[in-house]
Each structure stands twice: as structure tokens, then as C-alpha cells.
């Protein structure tokens, strides 16, 4: 279903961040940084070695999915915009969809040396920004987090913690050395 690209790994020694290659343009995404943490843009995922940290700024209906293996100290963060690759119109960028992005990133993590049976996951985001919308098709936040959980289950990756739903946007900081996620929501800070 999805083209898996092991050659998509590019290690940038200066930045010590392995950047995910966007399938669409065959171009390495330029990571930008906030306080030394690499920012994962909308529809992207990044994989790193500890002690790197990754950030998703302003997750609204998007969902942030962190997958990590603490034993080998390798982890990654996805900033997925839409739920399913199969339902999407744009087939060129598989990292945009929750299900395909998880598969792609798991492959990359394993490629880097992470042990698949030891992978764990945490998810955050998937808010319903506009509270009036009642139809499920328009509740992209809910569908994003549901598909993310479903895909993790299919991949046999245990979901350790989640902070999804609600009506407020979140900014999340993923720490690859202990697998924790710090969440800023509505001016409050919490950790999962």
C-alpha cells in the first residue's frame, strides 16, 4: 500500500537529527529549531537518537504521535494532519496521514536500530477546534486520534499514554531519552 523507503534516511551530523525525507519532493526537510529542539512541521515526522528533543508546535486537529524504544534510545515524532492514506487525495506525501506515517516511521526507527517489540507510543492532539461541528466526518481531530490508535494496535505497539480531544490546541515537547511528552495547553503545562 505504501512505498516504504529505507533510503529516505539522511543523517546530518551537524544537527545530530535524522531528517525524514518527504516522499513528494525527494527533498530533505530543513528542520528548524526552537530552543535547541527540532520542530516537526505539519505532515512531517522526525526520528532522533537520545538526548534529542522534538517539538510539535500548535497541534490543533492534527495529532502528534511519539514512538520510541528506550533500550536503544531511539525515538521519533509524527505531526499527522489527516487520518487515512487511503482516503486522502494527495498520495505523494504519505507522512501526512496518521496511519501511513506510523508505518513509515516504525520502519525508519527499526532501520536505525530500534527493536520493534520494544517500541512504545504516546499520542497527543486531535482537538476539535470548532465546537459546533457535530458530524463525524468534519471532526478531523477525533478521527485522527482514532486512526492513530487503531494503527498502533495493528502494529502491536503499546500505547502508554494519551492526551487527545478537547477544544484547545496543544504544543508538545517529546524527550527521546525518557519517552516523556510535555504538553502546553491553554497556558497550562502537563506531562504524560
Amino acid at each position: 500500500m505504501i512505498e516504504r523507503r529505507a533510503e529516505g534516511l539522511v543523517t546530518d551530523e551537524d544537527k545530530r537529527v535524522t531528517l525524514a525525507r518527504r516522499v513528494d519532493e525527494d527533498q530533505v526537510c530543513q528542520a528548524h529549531y526552537v530552543d535547541g529542539d527540532a520542530v516537526v512541521g505539519v505532515g512531517e515526522y522526525h526520528v532522533v537518537h537520545a538526548p534529542e528533543k522534538l517539538v510539535c508546535l500548535g497541534l490543533g486537529s492534527c495529532v502528534g504521535i511519539a514512538i520510541f524504544d528506550l533500550s536503544t534510545q531511539i525515538g521519533g515524532l509524527i505531526h499527522a494532519m489527516l487520518p487515512k492514506y487511503e482516503e486522502g487525495r494527495d498520495k505523494t506525501n504519505a507522512s501526512k496521514y496518521a496511519d501511513s506515517a506510523i508505518m513509515l516511521m516504525v520502519d525508519e526507527l527499526v532501520e536505525m536500530g530500534a527493536r520493534k517489540p520494544l517500541l512504545k507510543a504516546k499520542i497527543a492532539g486531535g482537538a476539535q477546534m470548532f465546537s459546533f461541528i457535530s458530524s463525524d466526518t468534519l471532526n478531523i481531530g477525533l478521527r485522527n486520534s482514532a486512526v492513530a490508535k487503531e494503527t498502533l494496535k495493528k502494529e502491536n505497539i503499546p500505547l502508554l499514554a494519551e492526551d487527545v480531544g478537547g477544544t484547545k490546541g496543544r504544543t508538545i515537547f517529546f524527550n527521546s531519552s525518557d519517552g516523556s511528552i510535555r504538553i502546553q495547553k491553554n497556558g497550562e503545562v502537563s506531562q504524560i
Binding site: V42, G58, G60, M81, A127, M129, S131, F132, K168
Partner: peptide, 21 residues
């Protein structure tokens, strides 16, 4: 209408996702 008060970045993801669909 529906209203949201939040970070612009988070809000814009909603129409972006709609547009994409």
C-alpha cells in the same frame, strides 16, 4: 457558525485538513 479562540497555527490546521480532503 462555530468559534474558536486559540493559537493561529492550531486553528489553521482545521481548514487545511478540510481543504486537503
Amino acid at each position: 457558525p462555530g468559534v474558536a479562540v486559540d493559537m493561529l497555527r492550531a486553528i489553521l490546521q482545521f481548514p487545511a485538513a478540510l481543504v486537503e480532503a
